[in-house]
């Protein structure tokens, strides 16, 4: 880079650098959380809203704050895991976060939840207003049929309460206008949420990566994934 030789040139260089920086950070380059109210883009819905998680594999560093904050906020009982961060074993030795391939996964609040269809006591219900699948632990008899039915293994059986529990998308927080704790605590914006139809329209998003189940045959899950981009070597 040329070193400016006069004050005019130095000021010009500073001004141009400032403009450049401002333009570069305006749109899309910094993580932004999508609030459901902003994400609500489709106006002519017939079936009602379906909220969804969005996970960007390029932004996740594997800090597991999503799972830890969920554990703290929802008091997971021993052995129960509502959300987990899993890593492709072939990237286990990676030092830099960008070389790791990660996925943070919980209940995907499917459009046709297998858990709800097999549960004999109707402990699962799907909220009409936002598509959240809520499980009523008070109704659960602990037959564990849903543990076999869920293709994402999102349900956990707790040996202490002898019931099944799962992620409820922080529906109580959402009812108060807040976002789920996992999305809130994600420091890089890797885990986001929004309306499914809206998130689906984002370029480069898919619903299945690697060995995950085929979404079209397992009850239409509400998860959108931005897959890992190949990095230049």
């Amino acid at each position: 880079m040329e070193i400016p030789t006069s004050r005019r040139k130095a000021l010009k260089a500073c001004f141009l650098t400032g403009i450049g920086l401002a333009l570069a950070t305006v749109e899309g380059s910094l993580p932004q959380k999508i609030h459901p109210r902003h994400a609500n883009a489709s106006q002519n819905r017939e079936e009602g809203l379906q909220l969804s998680f969005l996970f960007d594999q390029n932004r996740c560093t594997g800090c597991k704050l999503c799972a830890r904050s969920c554990k703290q906020a929802n008091n997971w009982e021993k052995g129960v895991e509502w959300r987990k961060v899993i890593q492709d074993p072939s990237t286990k030795g990676a030092k830099m976060p960008r070389d790791k391939t990660l996925l943070s996964i919980s209940c995907n609040h499917c459009a046709k939840p297998a858990c709800a269809s097999v549960c004999p006591v109707k402990a699962y219900s799907k909220r009409k207003e936002d598509g959240i699948v809520v499980q009523d632990q008070g109704k659960c008899v602990g037959c564990k049929y849903c543990l076999y039915a869920c293709p994402y293994q999102a349900l956990s059986y707790g040996e202490e309460t002898k019931t099944v529990s799962k992620c409820h998308f922080c529906y109580e927080r959402q009812d108060q206008g807040e976002i789920p704790i996992c999305v809130d605590k994600c420091p890089t914006g890797a885990l986001q949420m929004g309306e499914l139809d809206f998130l689906k329209r984002r370029v480069g998003t898919i619903q299945q990566v690697g060995n995950l189940p085929n979404p079209s045959i397992v009850g239409k899950p509400s998860i959108i994934i931005v897959p890992k981009r190949a990095l230049p070597k």
Partner: peptide, 27 residues
């Protein structure tokens, strides 16, 4: 075998609730 079978046996009649569940048919 039910987690709640002996703890909360009054939940068992609830197994007739979901007519789309094969387990309810079985019951």
């Amino acid at each position: 075998d039910l987690g709640q079978g002996l703890l909360k046996p009054w939940l068992i009649p609830g197994m007739l609730m979901n007519l789309s569940s094969v387990m309810t048919w079985g019951f």
